[in-house]
């Protein structure tokens, strides 16, 4: 879902750059406080894993592929602020080094995949999980959050394309929702597979609110 240069008008990507940078500044502050008793290398491992997993496009229907965004996964393991920082770092490296996602669209991509893909995913997950510590409930909540995060990010992307005059909303929104409803299933499945593994070997790595 990485938007390249040229898809968005300056009046859309400009404000999104400011929103992305401002939001990231907040997230880094909150991450710094949350990191107090969490080791720094976990952030690096999470970013490396998500970068690698994002390279693995899986086929979906209609000659299309999708790949993990990893926002929900990062949010379940790291909490919202650290997850935003990790996804943003991945997006910045992908943009600057691999030309995946345009530099002008970087703010939009951070808003869509870090803020909607990770932070909003966290709140969906937290609401669905409640205070349960049951494995099935955690996985179900993560799956719901993963699917919703992809579909909501694709809706935001469609809205940005429409506001840019790239494609009318009535055309681009249903198209984006339809294909990402499928890709979101892949996101949910991969998120659950990875979390099942983590719950089996290191359940203490799951983020538990106040613990930080």
């Amino acid at each position: 879902m990485h938007i390249p240069d040229g898809f968005l008008a300056a009046r859309v990507w400009g404000p999104l750059w400011i929103a992305g940078a401002g939001g990231l500044w907040w997230a880094l502050g909150a991450a710094g406080r949350a990191l107090k008793d969490r080791a720094v290398p976990l952030m690096g491992v999470m970013a490396a894993f998500i970068f690698a997993a994002q390279m693995l496009n899986f086929p979906v229907a209609g000659g299309t592929s999708g790949h993990l965004i990893g926002g929900a996964l990062a949010a379940v393991l790291l909490g919202p602020a650290c997850a935003v920082a990790v996804i943003a770092v991945v997006l910045i490296v992908q943009c600057l080094v691999f030309q995946d996602g345009g530099l002008t669209a970087l703010g939009a991509n951070v808003v869509n995949m870090a803020f909607i893909g990770a932070a909003l995913a966290y709140f969906i997950y937290a609401a669905a999980r409640g205070s349960s510590r049951e494995r099935g409930r955690i996985l179900t909540a993560a799956a719901v959050a993963a699917w919703c995060s992809v579909v909501l990010a694709s809706a935001a992307c469609a809205l940005q394309l429409a506001l840019s005059g790239t494609s009318p909303l009535r055309v681009v929104l249903p198209a984006m929702l339809a294909v990402h409803a499928l890709i979101g299933v892949g996101e949910a499945v991969i998120t659950c597979l990875v979390l099942s593994f983590v719950l089996a070997v290191r359940p203490d790595l799951i983020y538990e609110g106040g613990r930080g």
Binding site: G6, N57, T64, S65, G102, S167, V172, H180
Partner: peptide, 25 residues
């Protein structure tokens, strides 16, 4: 990995705005 276009690329192709992203980055 699958070389097929991703969701956004597919929509851009189907809805005729893929060319907008093919200029100089």
């Amino acid at each position: 990995a699958s070389p097929r276009p991703d969701g956004l690329e597919r929509v851009a192709e189907d809805k005729g705005f893929l060319h907008r992203g093919e200029g100089e980055p």
